[in-house]
Nucleic acid binder design. Structure first.
Length: 569
RNA sequence: GGGCCUGUAGCUCAAUUGGUUAGAGCAGAGCGCUCAUAACGCUUUGGUUGCGGGUUCAAGUCCUGCCGGGCCUACCA
């Protein structure tokens, strides 16, 4: 038995996430966590909300609520949705927790003591009307390069030229529209990542089998231009972790907070502490401290490609730079983006399906299956309603669901609701077992390697193998001349249902649970196919389950297409 | 501008890392079955691997030049 620590990139608190966000980190992380648990490994699966930063403050203001209250409410909303999608976090924490505050301040202190923090005086745009410093993206103005009137302070969306806010003509706040802006001097802490460039590169080069997406993004940041740049890790905001050196004040940094990308990854660790404080476990350190039992932990992170620099560079600098024995990530699984029907998901335009809407129209298993079997592992992928309807109807309803239905109903009508006895397995059963043995090996290999689409393909092939076997063995024909033979076929097929239940649970946990209840069976992962297909003995009672999956009609599909198309420009 | 990824059947994707005749699923066509959610099975149509050069005994795979799509480019998170 191994121990596996799994974290999903933590979703930002500001609003409900769409299906692209879900499939980019939380959902594949859950698949892996469920699989590893099923294989008997000890798993710690952590996620949280990322609550700090300007967007949270603005969203709270828009909602007319104090930011702490807004975040508490949105945390509950996201928690309920993750429960709805059956995301099996051992704990769903909050980056605003007391544990994270303390730990973030601790890391700041030890990094400072290690000489990795620099105090830098810089000038930033301050808005009098808004009463705050503005991030570059919150300033708009006319592009000095092309004349585009809605250029952002960091880059012009029209000519793509990178800008500095002071270069904008007629700059204004995108929050209030105010033009009462001035460049003000302010002091900030920088994390001296540049000093650790070689060490980071050596570490990344020594990793084997990482997705090319992960390493190529990391290498780009390490070697682009002048190489890895230092990064500001503080902000002039109210909402965040106050800048302190551990428990002590940080002279000159009063009233400032740490930047979200400094404290958010630290929440991975703090989340385990929250898990303990919530009474869910005893010892967080054996997952996170290599001096306290974590040296044999395998730590796997899941994230969208936009998060890769922070997980391959900034956070490792925090961990390594501390000089303390914190567990460093072993494998980083990154994802491309899921697009929606020819374009991007868009929160502002209401385009695409969001987590709450998805659960309102169909159970989570339908989404889990489609999203995971189409996970954007190699390139951006695309959600279309036609594809979704076809996959769900064919894979889930016809191939898996109907197999369960035909077997259980045939047995009920001919033998009653118990595994029939008599007859023997023969060459057809041998051939089926040989195929399933081969495919099970492939399935497990893909799951270990986190090759999600390939795993889904193999799982589906095992479902299809059941239908092929049934057609070939034809128990309805055998029953007329040799009922004992038909009994053997049905006995094997019922055992096949149990096997599917176990193997499918990481993808479609609710359907698996329903089947486990109907078959009155356990969920032990198979050691070998032959014994797995003898797990349910003759006489074992079961009940015919309701249809596992319904089909999506053309009318529904058309309705949803219109409903989620978003407002036109 | 720079960098990275990507382009394979109508659609979604494979191809053991340079090795036999480029394979699956869906959709289409034909046949079969009747246990089942009009489900299932079998057979089958469909390809100048974006385009042009090059290296090699051998290229979807490597090099090069075009064309298309996407992402990143460090103060959104």
């Amino acid at each position: 038995m191994a121990r596996v620590l799994i974290t999903s990139a933590i979703p930002y608190i500001n609003g409900i996430k769409h299906l692209g966000n879900l499939v980019g980190s939380q959902l594949p992380a859950d698949l892996y966590a469920r699989y590893m648990r099923a294989r008997g490994h000890e798993v710690m699966f952590l996620c949280a909300t990322d609550e700090h930063g300007t967007p949270a403050e603005l969203a709270a203001a828009k909602a007319g609520k104090p930011v702490a209250e807004y975040c508490a409410e949105m945390w509950q909303v996201q928690k309920d949705l993750s429960d709805g999608f059956r995301l099996s976090f051992d704990h769903f924490g909050r980056s605003s927790s007391a544990q994270n505050r303390k730990l973030t301040q601790h890391f700041a202190r030890v990094l400072d003591e290690a000489g990795l923090i620099a105090e830098v005086s810089e000038t930033q745009m301050y808005s009098h009307a808004d009463g705050r410093f503005l991030p570059d993206r919150y300033i708009e103005g006319t592009c000095p390069n092309c004349g585009f009137e809605s250029a952002r302070g960091d880059q012009c969306d029209n000519c793509t030229k990178q800008l500095n806010p002071v270069e904008l003509i007629n700059p204004r706040s995108t929050i209030s529209g105010s033009t009462d802006l001035e460049m003000r001097e302010t002091k900030h802490l920088h994390l001296r990542q540049s000093t650790m460039k070689d060490r980071l590169e050596e570490w990344i080069d020594s990793r084997e089998g990482w997705p090319i997406l992960t390493t190529s993004i990391a290498k780009k940041w390490l070697n682009d231009g002048d190489g890895l740049q230092d990064r500001g890790i503080t902000r002039d905001l109210d909402w965040g972790v106050p800048v302190q050196k551990g428990d002590a004040p940080w002279p000159g940094m009063e009233g400032k907070v740490f930047y979200v990308w400094f404290d958010a990854p630290i929440e991975y660790i703090a989340c385990a502490q929250e898990w303990v404080d919530a009474g869910k476990g005893e010892d967080w350190a054996r997952w996170w401290r290599t001096d306290k039992g974590a040296e044999d932990v395998r730590y796997v992170q899941f994230m969208g490609k936009d998060n890769v620099p922070f997980h391959t560079l900034s956070f490792p600098v925090t961990i390594l730079g501390s000089g303390e024995p914190w567990k460093l990530v072993d494998y980083i699984k990154s994802f491309n983006y899921l697009n929606y029907d020819g374009g991007q998901f868009s929160t502002s335009r209401g385009r695409g399906v969001f987590m709450d809407q998805a659960l309102e129209i169909l159970p989570s298993d339908y989404w889990r299956w489609w999203l995971l079997s189409h996970a954007p592992e190699n390139s951006d992928s695309e959600f279309t309603w036609e594809n979704f309807q076809a996959s769900v109807n064919k894979d889930l309803a016809d191939v898996l669901g109907n197999f369960v239905s035909r077997v259980t109903k045939f047995c009920r009508s001919k033998f009653g609701e118990a595994v029939p006895e008599g007859g023997a397995y023969g060459p057809q059963e041998d051939a089926l077992m040989a195929e399933l043995t081969r495919r099970l090996g492939a399935y497990q290999g893909h799951m270990e390697a986190i090759e999600i689409r390939k795993a889904a393909t193999e799982l589906r092939a095992m479902w299809a193998a059941g239908n092929e076997y049934l057609q070939d063995a034809a128990p309805w024909a055998a029953f007329k001349e040799d009922p004992a033979r038909a009994a053997a076929i049905v006995r094997l097929s019922l055992n096949l249902i149990r096997l599917y239940t176990v193997l499918s649970a990481p993808f479609v946990p609710d359907a698996a649970a329903a089947l486990r209840t109907a078959m009155a069976c356990d969920d032990a992962w198979p050691t070998d196919v032959e014994s797995a297909l003898n797990a349910l003995p003759a006489g074992h009672g079961f009940s015919v389950p309701e249809n596992l999956f319904r089909k999506i009609t053309d009318e529904e599909r058309e309705g949803w297409q219109a409903q989620f198309a978003g407002v036109r420009d």
